[in-house]
């Protein structure tokens, strides 16, 4: 029994203390990119940030800084795209919110982020927490719940706490489910081309329904070959070439 306990503790500690490799190189590259930005070498700075992202680094502040670099370069499309990507990681960041708003104002179409659905309004915290935070919170709650369950066998008065924790745990799992659904269903796309014609079908000679401009925010609802189905609202939807949109 003692061996089993020790094994699990080891497993948990081992898994939870895993750190990214080559951390110092990564941080040095960040310092370099930030320095380029400070020296107003925005293109080089953006390139440095992009190279880190290409290496698989996923960090909200990195996307934010990249968005800033693109804004400075006058590229509102990539700027909006990277701010939207940053939202996934740092949804509560006020600077990000302000800069995204600024970037949208710079676009010609000035399309705001789609409003949250009913479920997201009810589970408002889902929007304010990123997926990792939700998972860590749920794991923490899970541990507390099981510890409480064990204690409840000794102390029956903990029944109320047990039930409350069970409810919270259930809600946390639902929140994770909603988050996963949001990130898979509501895929946002940003027009990167200066001007894109939204077609009625997946062909260049299809009827042009409407035009969008760089930085316009759309919801990507489908993909077929090299075409993406996009939607602005219930009435305005169509197809655009995949290379004209960043997701």
């Amino acid at each position: 029994m003692k061996h089993a306990l020790a094994f699990f503790l080891f497993l948990v500690l081992t898994l939870s203390t895993s750190l990214p490799t080559e951390a110092s190189d990564y941080l040095n590259e960040i310092v370099r990119a930030n320095g380029l930005y400070a020296e107003k070498h925005y293109a080089e700075s953006a390139q440095a940030y992009e190279s880190l992202i290409d290496k698989g680094v996923q960090n909200g502040y990195l996307y934010y800084n990249l968005g800033n670099a693109y804004i400075r370069m006058g590229k509102t499309g990539p700027a909006v795209l990277n701010y939207v990507r940053a939202l996934k990681w740092i949804p509560r960041d006020e600077n990000l919110e302000a800069n995204l708003k600024f970037a949208i104002q710079q676009t010609r179409d000035k399309i705001e982020l789609p409003p949250p659905g009913t479920l997201n309004v009810l589970l408002f915290w889902v929007h304010d927490l990123n997926f990792h935070e939700l998972v860590v919170f749920t794991i923490g709650l899970n541990i507390i719940f099981w510890v409480n369950l064990a204690l409840w066998m000794y102390f029956p008065f903990l029944k109320v706490v047990r039930n409350a924790l069970l409810c919270f745990l259930f809600l946390s799992f639902v929140s994770i489910g909603v988050k996963i659904k949001n990130e898979s269903d509501l895929k946002l796309g940003v027009v990167l081309a200066e001007n894109v014609e939204v077609k009625s079908g997946r062909a260049g000679d299809a009827v042009t329904l409407f035009q969008l401009h760089e930085g316009a925010l759309v919801t990507v609802t489908g993909k077929h070959d090299n075409w993406l189905e996009i939607r602005l609202n219930d009435e305005q939807k169509g197809w655009v070439p995949q290379n004209s949109l960043g997701t």
Partner: peptide
């Protein structure tokens, strides 16, 4: 931009 390195932990 953000420059605090502790914010840039790989997520």
């Amino acid at each position: 931009i953000y420059t605090e390195l502790d914010k840039f932990q790989n997520n």
